[in-house]
């Protein structure tokens, strides 16, 4: 202790030291290793522009959800409802666009109708987020239970809206722009949207007061309360944000699949949680990064893609993805434990 206390006050560690101790550094190495291995095995089919383009497209929707999930998990909470909220947002958006179109056929709807659809999707997602937030923060019901409830409820309401079936028509203009359009001919718009959202909310988490309070509440809610932070209000806003992002993701999914995929997205919540946790965010709250989440979301995606391309049997894929998930988190915990023992 004396030697430590003898050091000059308030020194910053070197960039290298901070990098090596960062959770994201090691998990990034895992991702890099996976890419290298698959590229070595199947250079002509894995290491292609097309393949990575598809990889990014297919991960875009999940990434947007996982960004919201990162905030919730940093507060020490969880949101199981994201997949259902996504479907709800897509459904109410698609229904709105059909209602606004002649003959309930939204195939040829223009930008006015599509914009209305976007607004409705975001509002719908945010509404469920707000419900989650109020129940968690004000009514003090554990988030696991609240979001388990809204997981069912949101899907139920979505099913009611169209008698439990997918909507028939989705605007072609939406499909060709957000769903499959590209920027500069190469960068898919879906990916652009996901990247912009990730960067914005990465900055919000790591540079703003909103982000700082998110960490503080997850780290010690009592301390945050005593420091004068409106914990109830902030928690509500965090769940609202997650719902908002699930709403955007719902609209993206609608554009991409041209379907409300009402029986799909059942494991989005678990996939998002897995990605967030693999990226080094602590389920106990207080710790986490958006960069980690990005890497964490891509690890299972790259694994799946790689296995498919090199032709590993589907049963083995399930086993391997599960094993890598658990191993990555175990490895991270071991490393952290040894770090805390010093």
């Amino acid at each position: 202790m004396t030697t430590l206390d003898g050091l000059p006050t308030a020194e910053r560690r070197s960039l290298g030291a901070r990098l090596l101790s960062a959770n994201t550094f090691w998990i990034a190495l895992v991702l890099l290793a996976l890419i290298v291995v698959f590229s070595a095995i199947a250079p002509e089919s894995f290491l292609t522009f097309f393949n990575f383009q598809q990889l990014f497209i297919e991960t875009a929707v999940l990434l947007v959800i996982a960004v919201g999930m990162t905030f919730v998990i940093i507060t020490g909470g969880i949101d199981l409802s994201v997949g259902s909220v996504l479907i709800f947002a897509g459904m109410i958006s698609a229904k709105t666009m059909e209602w606004m179109s002649p003959g309930q056929d939204a195939s040829n709807a223009g930008w006015g109708v599509i914009t209305a659809g976007l607004v409705v999707a975001i509002a719908g997602g945010s509404l469920w987020g707000l419900i989650n937030g109020l129940l968690v923060a004000r009514a003090n019901i554990p988030p696991l239970i609240v979001t388990l409830g809204t997981l069912g409820a949101a899907l139920g309401v979505a099913s009611l809206l169209n008698d439990g079936t997918n909507v028939r028509t989705v605007p072609l203009e939406l499909r060709d722009s957000l769903g499959f359009g590209t920027l500069e001919g190469n960068i898919p718009n879906l990916v652009v949207v996901a990247v912009v959202i990730t960067v914005i909310f990465g900055l919000v988490l790591h540079t703003t007061r909103f982000g700082r309070y998110t960490f503080a509440i997850g780290s010690n809610p009592e301390a945050a309360r005593r420091a004068g932070i409106g914990v109830t209000r902030h928690l509500t806003n965090v769940y609202l944000l997650t719902g908002f992002l699930a709403g955007i993701a719902g609209f993206m999914s609608l554009a991409y699949f041209q379907s409300t995929t009402i029986s799909g997205h059942t494991t989005d919540n678990l996939n998002a949680i897995a990605g967030v946790v693999m990226g080094g965010t602590s389920l106990f709250g207080g710790i986490g990064t958006i960069l980690g989440t990005v890497i964490g979301v891509f690890i299972p995606a790259v694994l799946q893609k790689g296995f498919n391309i090199i032709g590993v049997q589907p049963y083995w894929q399930m086993i391997a993805v599960g094993a890598v998930l658990v191993a990555a988190v175990w490895f991270d915990q071991q490393r952290r434990r040894s770090q805390n023992k010093r």
Partner: peptide, 19 residues
């Protein structure tokens, strides 16, 4: 196998196109 998820089905298709 697609786990009955559209997203997984899409991913399997693009992977097959690659390989």
């Amino acid at each position: 196998f697609t786990e009955n998820e559209p997203s997984v089905a899409a991913q399997k298709v693009t992977a097959a196109i690659s390989s």
